[in-house]
Write a protein that binds this DNA or RNA. Structure first.
Lengths: 216, 216
DNA sequence: GCCAACATGAACACATATGTTCAGGTTTTG
DNA sequence: CAAAACCTGAACATATGTGTTCATGTTGGC
């Protein structure tokens, strides 16, 4: 039951049926945007930001917020969806064709900052939403990585001796780890992209083949 | 702070001063054990198991529990400490000398099940305890990994072009990722150790050197 | 066997968050 | 301008968890 009274956060469970979305008034649309903006910001800073905090940050009454998002989970879902859409848009600008190693390096360069920035939005979602939902929202991004890995395997430059799924997991895992380490001051932010890329290239390269160095 | 009325969970903040621990009665000691056992089990299953749940699982009154652990955080701390001590004991049986690659493989083989088993105990701790405390409790284990990495670097078989800290992070990160993937059914439990070892060996091997295959 | 240490459930105090209702004020929209 | 849509704060209803107090049993040590 993740549906709003009138469709603002309407992503009905896990499939996103657009639904008959009656046109809402201008101020309502404005408020929804403010709320999503504020929520994204608040949740990025603190995964358990309260609904009250978010409403205040949005410059909106708490009741107004509940008028648009039926539950807290609904709001978190909307923020996560929005964040992933934004990330995906940013990633659309990244070329995933050509040499798989370079493609991977490009993708890491474009992704890791986003991962870093919205790390705790994900955390919030993981505490509130069912795992399938998280998985579903990540689908497009996952697909993108999988495509690169797959290309690399077919080209014989990425390893074939481990499950493809695991290689994808490795990519995500190390990006998240780098985000955390950077936040904790254990890894230099200016160096993170290179470090992650170098590690991933080594991890994914087919045994026996020469490990390429990430070209900045 | 994090101290019990009479010293059961007494690890005063971050340093573990043994304190003048007046000998407690036999039934008290018995109950403390039951509580820790139950808490470890409950928290391993659900990171937000309540104190009431744990007391019930321990076959003990809630008030009794609070008599031994002043706060929930105290209890979580005690469980985490205990878990890490157990892990460390298990790891003591693992030879970390000799060929660094094989040492790493041995360590992964001995560790990953533990990581898998107590994954959500860590989660609970991360929500309740300050990051420094988590770090402190992990110190010995961290040191162990770092030693292996360091040996490998000095022997010229592990890479020297990335921060040592990051390599250690990589080891932990991939073990945890494997634990999650296994729990989610995306990775075969029987295959996990091999997969993680193979990935780590590739990730850590010095550029140019031949990547070894994990010997089971 | 006696006394102190310990255990126990019930009840209470407190805090915090989520949702909801209400009675009125404001903005859009047509 | 008028109706409908929307916003608002205050108050309320829940729910849930933590931690404490109390009065009364129970157990263990010496």
């Amino acid at each position: 039951m993740a549906a709003t009274s009138r469709g603002a956060g309407d992503r009905s469970g896990s499939a996103q049926a657009p639904a008959a979305q009656t046109e809402r008034r201008a101020d309502a649309r404005r408020n929804i945007r403010s709320i999503l903006d504020a929520a994204q910001l608040c949740l990025a800073r603190d995964a358990d930001a309260s609904v009250a905090d978010i409403a205040k940050a949005a410059g909106v009454g708490r009741v107004t917020l509940y008028g648009h998002f039926k539950t807290r989970a609904d709001l978190v879902d909307a923020v996560l969806t929005r964040t992933m859409e934004q990330s995906d848009a940013a990633l659309d600008a990244t070329d995933t064709t050509g040499d798989p190693g370079q493609a991977l390096t490009r993708l890491v360069g474009a992704s890791w900052q986003i991962v870093h920035q919205f790390h705790s939005v994900l955390q919030a979602a993981q505490r509130e939403l069912p795992p399938e939902r998280i998985r579903a929202v990540h689908d497009r991004t996952l697909q993108r990585v999988q495509t690169i890995v797959d290309n690399g395997r077919r080209a014989g430059v990425f390893r074939d001796d481990l499950p493809e799924r695991w290689l994808v997991t490795t990519v995500f895992s190390l990006m998240h780890a780098a985000a955390e380490d950077t936040a904790a001051g254990r890894l230099d932010a200016g160096d993170a992209a290179r470090v992650v890329s170098a590690t991933l290239l080594a991890a994914l390269t087919a045994p026996g083949a020469a490990v390429p160095t990430p070209a900045p």
